[in-house]
Design a protein around this nucleic acid. Structure first.
Lengths: 336, 336
DNA sequence: TTGTATGCGTTATCAT
DNA sequence: ATGATAACGCATACAA
């Protein structure tokens, strides 16, 4: 691999001059700078990232953290879309991305140590248990971080607009004439709290009363637990006319359960999902759901993180709300 | 971040001794070595990856390449599963992974240069246009590489067993009584060639003749083109009784087209997919398809790449065939 | 405007 | 068995 020394030799100048020219320092004559840059390009020069990182403490490398815990894996469509757009935007701005994990091989290190080990300029925390002390250590460290779907104090976060999303769904269902609406929710994260609160608030606003046993717990991305919750809802003396599922995938558990009871969607029961993954739109009937703006979220995460990295002096933490989009589908029937 | 100098000071020895002790050099007394290792652990020492990479030319970092071209994106389930298992196995062995791309920010570099720029110890080429000169440059360079679903000469490759997979599907369909089988294929890659050849060969073996117009071109992961091909097949004077689709997702295009013609699956038409993604198994009826061993492929890719990196002297290129699994589903009906 | 010298954290060579 | 020193490639403070 060609290095600065080679260019210096080729141009008959010192290594320092080459370095300056390449980095656009003001104290090098325009012509030498031009000559140097041209030969560098001709010779196919690229700086050695490790050497540069060692010297200036900047790696042009940002970490991406997906906790391996259930639900946050890369192969979930929502997260893989986020990953893809985080990557694309970072690359567009000249940054590489590296996954941050714990316990690399024999070394026992936590997320913070891993990020330091790789000299990451910043970290996108895309999916994690935000109560985990290791996550908290990272998010409260001197390393710039951006979190998705969770806010740490004085840190930037990218938030899917769960409040508005849930409100849109409730209103849609309401306008179709539904008044008995059940809600199956995932684990009690802050996201869940927002969705649940928005659900209740919108219902109250519209004058819908929600019996306590219409609210059922389950797990995200786990069709089985949602199937169970569905069964319980069907056993109630007064069945709901519409069921909200924690996410699109979970609905499938409900679907199976409904089939068992000979109930068809939407004639026998109306249903609503959340996420708007590909699957939801290829199912027949197409699922009524709310598509989260995954691509925009990933892009914004990279953008704001790099903004912070490159302008730490003028930077202020923000909470960026990313809107999604209601997908009407055909799983909510009109009732009179 | 704590460094070797700190440990040296704490232990009252030189940096050289610390380095030796930490790297298990023989010329340091057992007791000092032990003392040094313990304080290092207590102080939470981890080597600086950049400094080490600069010095020894090993980064403990492997590149992963997903070409951005249509079809190979990370958000396709097959590839995201591969990515996830490549990552898991690499981390288990102490390696980080970084995405390799072209044109990082303003820098114009190709894949090979990018890998060098980051001092990657090796690269997993997970999805790419293998005719692309930039890919060929990388795969024929001195950097260890492993390719998925394609073989370069004298390089290790991980191959999904397309021949056996297609054979299994044809035999399954044959046993259900089908004799008029159509085949819609994706772009003419080597994978496609293998599937097509295996399809034809197995048909021949079983005494099935396949009219030329039963073989139709389309694109992978593109429901529309498969829908078009389906329409053409339906227009034939002698319709097939079963259609093979390029992949599970593409089948959806066919499904829509069949619905338009009032044809139900599997009563009016039997169909078969390929890949075995989650979607295929939540559709009703469940799709008959062949699940590729994505997780095993990623794991083997990391394992063999790191094997090569760490034992370059004794290492030999291999072609590793990973078997999949027939998923029976219910989209192939029994005919008499 | 250009060049010299130094150090980033680590490992390897060579003395001691 | 341990330590002094140089070098990896780069960027910068300072000297020329």
């Amino acid at each position: 691999m060609i290095k600065i020394t080679d260019i210096a030799a080729a141009c008959g100048v010192s290594r320092a001059t080459v370095s300056k020219a390449l980095n656009g320092a003001p104290d090098v004559s325009a012509e030498t700078a031009k000559r140097i840059r041209e030969t560098a390009r001709k010779m196919g020069y690229h700086p050695n990232a490790a050497a540069r990182a060692l010297k200036v403490g900047r790696s042009y490398n940002i970490g991406v953290l997906f906790s391996d815990r259930t639900g946050g894996g890369i192969s979930h469509e929502y997260f893989s879309q986020i990953l893809e757009s985080v990557k694309a935007e970072a690359e567009r701005r000249g940054y590489d991305i590296t996954f941050i994990s714990q316990n690399l091989g024999a070394m026992h290190m936590d997320y913070y140590e891993h990020a330091k080990y790789r000299s990451c300029d910043g970290v996108v925390i895309a999916s994690a248990d935000f109560q985990d002390p290791a996550i908290i250590r990272l998010a409260t460290s001197e390393i710039p971080t951006v979190t998705l779907d969770y806010s740490f104090d004085s840190r930037t976060s990218i938030l899917s607009d769960n409040v508005r999303g849930m409100e849109a769904l409730v209103r849609f269902v309401y306008e179709k004439g539904h008044r008995r609406i059940a809600f199956i929710h995932g684990e009690m994260t802050t996201v869940t709290q927002k969705r649940l609160a928005s659900f209740k608030k919108t219902c109250a606003l519209l004058g819908i009363s929600v019996p306590a046993d219409y609210i059922r717990p389950a797990y995200y991305h786990d069709p089985r637990s949602s199937g169970l919750a569905t069964r319980e809802l069907l056993a109630l003396s007064e069945r709901p006319t519409c069921i909200f599922y924690p996410d699109d995938l979970s609905f499938l558990g409900g679907m199976t359960e409904l089939e068992k009871h000979g109930i068809s969607v939407p004639d026998g029961m109306s249903v609503v999902g959340y996420d708007g993954i590909l699957l939801s739109q290829v199912l027949r009937p197409r699922l009524t759901t709310y598509r989260q703006g995954a691509e925009a979220m990933g892009r914004e995460a990279s953008r704001s993180l790099i903004e912070e990295i490159e302008h730490r002096d003028t930077w202020l933490p923000q909470q960026i709300l990313v809107e999604g989009e209601l997908l009407e589908g055909s799983t909510v029937r009109e009732i009179d």
